[in-house]
Design a protein around this nucleic acid. Structure first.
Lengths: 91, 91
DNA sequence: TCGATTTATCGAAATGTTTCGATAAATAAA
DNA sequence: TTTATTTATCGAAACATTTCGATAAATCGA
């Protein structure tokens, strides 16, 4: 992973609402629909949509259109790659 | 590590200049003086000082006054703690 | 078909971050 | 003691991010 990608992921991970969204995946068997986030995240719908977009752009999650909904899933592979990047910073 | 701390670290890691600074520690046997960064990081001195402050505040590095200089060292422990935080996000 | 639901996008306001020049404080070196 | 070096801080400009209301597009249900 190059520094530019790591920077993008770090940015995605640097917001309390996005961290909360990522944690929600654990409670929902790895998949998630935006419309169910309203209860957990107290933000307007466009704001949640904005955060999802940043998470998708960073590839920390994937999105899959399912009829009227969009199904989001955590991308464990990208988390692993980012972990390796940070490990490489260590002395 | 709580979410607030993880957020602070992610923020510290989300800037290209700060990533470059962290990578410099590898080349310098874990310690570093600001005044030697000028060659690597093309920023004015107050900007470098600002980035060092954010890294110190996040506890990713430590600082130690040595006469006229300040010696900075990488805090591997904090990197490990952050790695564990990210691991915990995985499904 | 028609109304409700889900998500995305636009534009704007508020807030936060990055950068720099100017300046200050501390210490080393001459 | 005087000058140079190292780092921090202040204030301001430029830029980026977060948030929302309004609106649009797609699809589901009645």
């Amino acid at each position: 992973m190059d520094a530019k990608k790591a920077e993008k992921i770090a940015k995605a991970l640097s917001d309390p609402n996005r961290l909360m969204i990522l944690k929600e995946f654990k409670k929902n068997k790895d998949c998630l629909y935006c419309c169910n986030l309203g209860d957990t995240i107290s933000l307007a719908q466009p704001s949640i949509s904005h955060h999802m977009k940043l998470l998708i752009d960073s590839e920390l999650i994937t999105s899959d259109k399912e009829g009227r909904n969009v199904k989001y899933a955590l991308n464990n592979k990208m988390l692993d790659e980012y972990i390796n990047f940070i490990k490489a910073l260590k002395i």
